[in-house]
Design a protein around this nucleic acid. Structure first.
Lengths: 157, 157
DNA sequence: ATTATATTAAGGTCAAAGAAGGTCAAAAAT
DNA sequence: ATTTTTGACCTTCTTTGACCTTAATATAAT
């Protein structure tokens, strides 16, 4: 018997194929459909639709809430994927971060303007706190922004 | 699926656009039109037309009462300067930061893409560290990015 | 005609209920 | 031992309704 999680995974991937890599779903509805606990949907998303696997997830609670899944264009974003999975890690110096941003710009993954903005967010000065935590925070922010760039890109088809 | 509050928000914003940023409406009439509780109008106003978000509301009860909504169209640089000098300060919550970014986008001070990127840099998740320092760091980063937007702009003239 | 009172027509507040999604750990299955 | 499934509990956002306050107008009393 195929594991339910696998079935749900396939189901979502089919939907994604039919909708050009972008879709919105209702967690409870889906759980209902498969007669499983709602949290199983989260499990599927966490184990099969992670960033490393090339997916980006946004959600909103409350009435009219939703879960939005974006399939990132992996081929086109090879370098950025590498950055997210290994290239950055938990800590990164100001210099390294600036270099990475410059390279993304050179490769035309991002515009000059975006590069400028990203740089502004990862400088020592921006992050403030004079502590060893700074490099960790920087890494986290940089990763978040790179993810955003990718998600934005695949969003407008 | 679409949240009623969102529909009402859009409705009001459209009216505002058509009337040069100033309009008067009848709470009960609007509630009637959307077939909702009158207090839902207040909810929409409170959550989407706050001062922070650039709107000012006046109202009057009793016969001939009304709700007047004004969109505050401050000069772009004025607003950003205000943000830098007083609006943000040393600490800012995730929600407030997102609101400010949304407003800058609404008023077309920044593009949707830039807004998306900026948001990604100031979320709790991006900043990581679970500590009271987070709001300080966020304020600092947000200020830095706003400065960058301004600088970028004045650079290409 | 003037003043006091009642009625009606607005809008305001707040808390409870409802409608999502999130987290985490225990139990079950492989 | 690892992965999957389930369920209890949490957080966030929205919707609804009961009750309150204020203003204008109509009516009654002086």
């Amino acid at each position: 018997m195929a594991r339910l999680s696998d079935v749900i995974e396939e189901f979502i991937k089919t939907l994604l194929r039919e909708s050009e890599g972008q879709l919105e779903l209702q967690r409870n509805e889906l759980a209902d459909y498969f007669e499983c606990a709602p949290s199983q949907i989260n499990y599927v998303l966490a184990t099969r639709f992670s960033l490393d696997q090339g997916y980006y997830i946004e959600s909103r609670r409350g009435g009219g809430g939703y879960i939005r899944i974006l399939r990132l264009d992996v081929d086109r974003n090879d370098y950025m994927h590498y950055l997210l999975s290994e290239g950055i890690g938990n800590r990164i110096s100001e210099n390294n971060a600036l270099q990475i941003i410059k390279r993304m710009m050179d490769q035309e993954y991002i515009t000059q303007e975006t590069a400028y903005l990203m740089k502004s967010a990862v400088t020592d000065k921006a992050i403030g706190i004079p502590s060893s935590l700074r490099d960790n925070i920087r890494a986290s922010i940089l990763r978040s922004m790179i993810t955003a760039v990718m998600a934005w890109d695949s969003r407008k088809t």
